[in-house]
Design a protein around this nucleic acid. Structure first.
Lengths: 358, 358
DNA sequence: GATTAGCACTCTCCACGCTAGAGTGCTAAC
DNA sequence: GTTAGCACTCTAGCGTGGAGAGTGCTAATC
């Protein structure tokens, strides 16, 4: 009866739903009433469980692949499982050590660190991992330097407070001396330090303009480059690792199932959209149809954001079938994000004292 | 009879081998004598062709998947086909335009250019593409600059003659003033300009040491970083694109066949080894067992090296089944490498005049 | 009234055998 | 030297049928 929909689940139904979900996550095979009765000590016969399972199906928590098969959790079932039923697994000491030590190695470089993060996450979770590189829009200018390479070639160097260094070679017509460049560097530093990148093209530009009116042409080019350097294009970088791990999952052993996923994992923009709006540092899950991307309506994505010095700047995540080991993977993703936050923050603190402008 | 081995092929055998290979490359199905007789006007009956094909098999150019199937070229057969038989296809005007225009767009950044190259190559050839980033070992120092970010934090900036900019943030104990840094920059520039990166850790280091003895600690750290920056680690970068395209090939439609390939495409080091020794700017092919990597003994790799200002610095390539469209793809790889060479050279010429050391 | 045993039914999976088709090698004729 | 013809071989595809797993329903039991 439809009236059973939306009724709160009683304890017994919860237990059965949990048992079915646990078992299915483990076995990837539809779970029958007999299996539940035998494998999980609920003190009930298979017939009773059969009835309860029929109810759970009617309420939308379970589904049947075909008429005489066992039950499988629906998206709703997984959602309930994640929110209320599963027993979150503690990270083992080995895992903690592995994550921490592996990541610590490559402290030196931001890009390496991100890359390594994706690798470890894939390796430990056994699912394809996706890491969005730190978003630079909210980063603050720390240092700007112009270096003259040749009469018409200038190197523009930007260091952000997140420890990120961006450089661009600028070609422009017209000469400019090293002294003038030094002067400009000083001016730019004074004006821009502490400003966030995304605020660049506001009033500030006009302000700068008056200072730099003498070098009008250069100014125009420089600003253009500045804006471009900080634009989305170069910042929407996405790192994927272990894409082939998805092949281990029986639901993707046929190429028709597997191909669209692989395609997704090769398209940075779609991956970006997939993760970009998740900004909680605790692990978040999107289950099946909760994902915006149609091609992964049979997948779940576990994400966790990371931060630099308290400012959320990026997201890491893993992709798997809806039959994912939520209880195991969620804490891993969360912890990995936390370690990444810590290391990035550490990285950004380097030389975070007063900066000489000489 | 074994005596037939290594006999030069007569014209008729060549024609038949070419027909079989052409047909198999197109259809992916073993080619029978009847097909050859019907589809290719050789003026011979299927029976005659049958006899010739038996000979070709005996000489090792053809193989039979099973007793009553058609013939398929062996690695040797493909090798002969590539070296002597195939009619190389001219690039269409559309292809030339496509490659050129697509690549021209992103002139600005070296990394973007490499990335884009991989994309285009994959897109046009319809095979997974692999691009090794420019090898920096042979690049020459053009400019070195030390920038003081904070009392104990220094930014080391290296610009090579290939237009590549590398930067490192160096932490070290001990203070150093901006003036000292400027002085050091001048010294370093004088000493290092024009030296190739790989020559860094030779006599030169001792030479430098005497100049920098005053800043011993800093010197040690700086040199360490210099060497590390130019070490293989950061230069063995490999870009892969369109890995999933391999799924379009019928020989890899089963996951067992496909999986090892995918794994290869995710392992940068193996890819590096696969391409690294190819250094001809004309398209080269490695067919099946000619490849060192065991897992791709049923694949071919077409490569072409690219250069910056006449110096070979990297390799691009595509991976496919041995049943690859050699005649179509080889010119594409070659042309793409040539365009890349041109653009990189262009990029490196920017501001290639005298450099002020002020 | 809730639980359970029993049973008929349904659906999938897989092994088996069969046929059609494609291609061969060999022999004998041209 | 070439070709027609034929017997033979091997694969791919299809339909059949039984085994196995699991259900829903009914009737008996607690």
């Amino acid at each position: 009866m439809a009236s059973k929909k939306n009724q709160p689940l009683d304890e017994r139904k919860k237990k059965i739903l949990k048992a079915v979900t646990d078992d299915y996550i483990l076995s990837a095979e539809p779970v029958g009433s007999r299996t539940v009765a035998k494998r999980y000590q609920l003190g009930l016969s298979s017939a009773t469980i059969r009835n309860e399972m029929a109810d759970l199906e009617e309420s939308g928590y379970l589904e049947q692949p075909h008429a005489s098969a066992g039950r499988v959790p629906s998206d709703l079932g997984y959602r309930y499982y994640v929110d209320a039923l599963m027993s979150v697994q503690q990270l083992s000491g080995g895992e903690v050590d592995l994550i921490y030590s592996q990541m610590d190695h490559h402290q030196q470089e931001l890009e390496m660190l991100i890359h390594k993060t994706a690798k470890i996450l894939g390796q430990i979770t056994k699912y394809p991992s996706i890491v969005l590189a730190p978003q630079m829009q909210t980063a603050l200018f720390r240092h700007i330097q112009l270096v003259r390479l040749a009469p018409k070639t200038i190197l523009l160097l930007i260091v952000t407070d997140t420890g990120y260094v961006e450089n661009k070679i600028i070609d422009f017509e017209g000469e400019i001396s090293s002294e003038e460049l030094d002067h400009l560097s000083v001016v730019l530093n004074k004006k821009l330090r502490g400003i966030s990148l995304k605020d660049l093209n506001t009033v500030l530009l006009n302000d700068l303009h008056s200072e730099m009116i003498l070098h009008d042409h250069f100014y125009n080019e420089a600003i253009k480059v500045l804006i471009k350097a900080m634009s989305k294009k170069s910042n929407e970088r996405v790192f994927v690792d272990g894409a082939t791990k998805i092949l281990e999952q029986p639901e993707f052993s046929e190429i028709q199932k597997f191909k669209p996923l692989m395609n997704l994992l090769e398209e940075e923009e779609r991956l970006y959209k997939l993760l970009a709006d998740n900004s909680k540092s605790s692990a978040q899950v999107k289950i099946g149809h909760e994902n915006s991307d149609e091609e992964i309506h049979d997948c779940s994505v576990i994400t966790s954001s990371y931060e630099i010095a308290g400012r959320t700047v990026g997201v890491i995540g893993v992709l798997g079938p809806t039959r994912m080991e939520y209880a195991r993977v969620m804490p891993i993703v969360e912890y990995t994000a936390a370690v990444l936050s810590e290391l990035l923050t550490q990285l950004s603190r380097r030389g975070h004292g007063r900066i000489d402008s000489g």
